[in-house]
Design a protein around this nucleic acid. Structure first.
Lengths: 144, 144
DNA sequence: ATATAAAAAGACCTTTTTATCCTTAAATAA
DNA sequence: TTATTTAAGGATAAAAAGGTCTTTTTATAT
């Protein structure tokens, strides 16, 4: 569904949100440990998320990554997916056609619209706050 | 959503179904032309589809690919996706966790179940016959 | 039988994705 | 100010996906 980079990005952001709700900054190292991801690769992804304004980054001792409360409420899974994988999964044709629309549909066009719309809506509605609280109270996990 | 190989595989099978409904065998070359795909790469995918029993292949002059009427009715998009991409998209965790289930869910587990179930059901219900007739009467297209 | 036409098979190449390593820049604490 | 800590950035490597080329096998028509 998503690229590995995007999976790491979503997991990292959820963890940053959890820590931020406790007013804590987290370092790259802590994040990579928590989500069980390669450190250097995770660094690249966090760079991208920081550039996209999804997370804040700070250098130096006591530095790390953080989100403010507004971000935790407003950032949706959708935003992370768009930042890392682009919008191909939301807009692209199920069979990879470049010019597939209602006028010139591919054989699975209509069938995919419903699925795709469900996915888009779900990801647009799901905030970091929602996912972070589930993780914080031990309802969900990011490892294994 | 699907790999390029899988997209080609679905398109190729639909085209083979259309031609088979007219009692015609089609060659690799015709298929690749029709679905606008690289010939040699398409050959690999058709080999796999033939081994999986999704299409029949015949060597020699007048050879090519074909489906019988039973296959056209019974083969679902789901079967092609499983043969080429495996069942990861139907069973795998949305965040790539290896041990993600109702007992140990990832943060998006429940949200993905609905989407995934819709997708699975849709692909399990959609037969080659349905897609082939849409293409045959010019309602849908495989190119561009 | 033989030439021919087609798919099967295997070796190879290219691009993209995933991942690592090393250096640089910035911030903090002493 | 300086040592230290942390993210940013760039170069490189490994793995996977996508794609090509050549040879072999099989079937057909002549």
């Amino acid at each position: 569904m998503f690229s590995k980079a995007c999976e790491y990005g979503i997991k990292a952001t959820i963890f940053i949100a959890v820590k931020s709700l406790h007013d804590q900054r987290v370092s790259l190292k802590e994040i990579a440990e928590e989500i069980d991801s390669p450190v250097a690769f995770t660094a690249k992804i966090l760079q991208l998320l920081a550039k996209s304004g999804i997370v804040d980054s700070h250098k130096g001792p006591t530095g790390g990554f953080q989100m403010d409360r507004t971000g935790i409420d407003n950032v949706k899974v959708y935003d992370i997916v768009c930042a890392i994988d682009g919008d191909k999964i939301f807009n692209g044709c199920g069979l990879g056609l470049k010019h597939c629309d209602a006028e010139h549909p591919c054989p699975v066009h209509d069938k995919f619209i419903a699925i795709r719309d469900n996915l888009t809506t779900m990801l647009q509605k799901t905030s970091m706050f929602e996912l972070a609280t589930g993780l914080d109270i031990g309802l969900t996990q990011l490892k294994r």
